[in-house]
């Protein structure tokens, strides 16, 4: 955040801000976030993953060999890419969801408040009569918009690569039934939305961490570090008692949307868990941010 960005923010003419003012704040936040080089670099990395996976699978299966020697190794759905390019979307999301996507969200969320504080721009934002609660909500909305944007970047990139390198058309669900391409596309979009919603929890966690410190780098590192720790804890069988309450535990449940009929149990658990994390860490961030001394 540079001071020049502040110029685009509407001046505060009255003490009581209109609702539109918040939209203006959100708009300016979004533009500032997306225009940053680091955001663009993150999105670029995310867009490159499906390209890499697509080309690798294409080269491996040139002579009709099955993917991974037919052993079923690798991310979910990878063996089905040769059936239908649409499966590249699911494979790319399954490959990026455990780490790339939440890391990108962690960087953006960790930077949200602490970055402003570190650059000394936070108090200028608070000079405008937005109020701390509203500013926090705007920041959280921006991070969530980034969750959706990042997921869509992966989805669209995978869709383009999949369409170029592999056949499209009717696709076979993992239950063995066939659905039309239009329905498959609809499911792909739904999966992208579910994946974006899966990141809401880590976004709230990052925002809370961001209110704890005045250093953007520290907040990002803490968020990504927490993410890695939780992912490791989620893999240790002896800790299975706590695992259902860890935010990444049901992340791969988005694959259940490719069953026919859809198996909703884990999907609903995932969304409920994300809402819980958003509620707990969102309100913790609010408690911290509205009570804290803003010195920079």
């Amino acid at each position: 955040m540079s001071r020049a960005d502040l110029r685009s923010r509407p001046p505060a003419a009255t003490r009581r801000p209109s609702p539109l003012w918040a939209l203006g704040l959100l708009h300016s936040e979004l533009v500032t976030t997306v225009r940053r080089w680091r955001t663009l670099a993150l999105l670029g990395v995310l867009a490159a993953v499906p390209v890499l996976v697509g080309i690798a699978v294409r080269i491996e299966t040139r002579d009709g060999a099955p993917v991974g020697g037919g052993s079923g190794e690798g991310p979910a759905f990878i063996t089905q890419i040769t059936n239908n390019g649409l499966f590249l979307v699911f494979t790319a999301l399954a490959a990026t969801l455990p780490f790339f996507l939440p890391m990108a969200v962690g960087v953006i969320a960790g930077d949200a408040i602490a970055g402003e504080a570190g650059a000394g721009t936070l108090r200028y934002l608070l000079v405008a009569p937005a109020g701390r609660t509203r500013l926090l909500l705007t920041k959280y909305a921006t991070v969530m918009a980034f969750c959706l944007l990042a997921t869509l970047v992966v989805t669209v990139s995978a869709l383009i690569v999949g369409a170029l390198l592999f056949p499209l058309g009717e696709l076979t669900t993992i239950s063995g039934t066939r659905v039309s391409f239009a329905e498959g596309l609809g499911r792909a979009l739904l999966i992208a939305l579910v994946v974006a919603a899966s990141l809401v929890g880590v976004a709230a966690l990052g925002l809370f961490v961001s209110t704890l410190t005045n250093s953007g780098i520290a907040a990002m590192a803490t968020t990504v570090g927490l993410l890695i720790t939780v992912q490791i804890v989620d893999q240790i069988p002896q800790l299975h008692v706590v695992q259902p309450y860890l935010f990444p535990h049901y992340w791969l449940s988005f694959a259940d949307l490719m069953r026919d009929p859809v198996y909703w149990d884990d999907l609903i658990r995932n969304l409920g868990l994300q809402a819980l994390y958003a509620g707990v860490f969102g309100s913790a961030a609010w408690a911290r941010f509205t009570a804290k001394d803003i010195s920079a």
């Binding site: 108090r123 608070l126 701390r132 009570a291 001394d293 010195s295 920079a296």
Partner: peptide
Amino acid sequence: MAPYESDDAVGAARDEEPR
């Protein structure tokens, strides 16, 4: 992070809630 000494007063004035 610039440590401005006078900030507390500014912050207090802006705060909506009693501190």
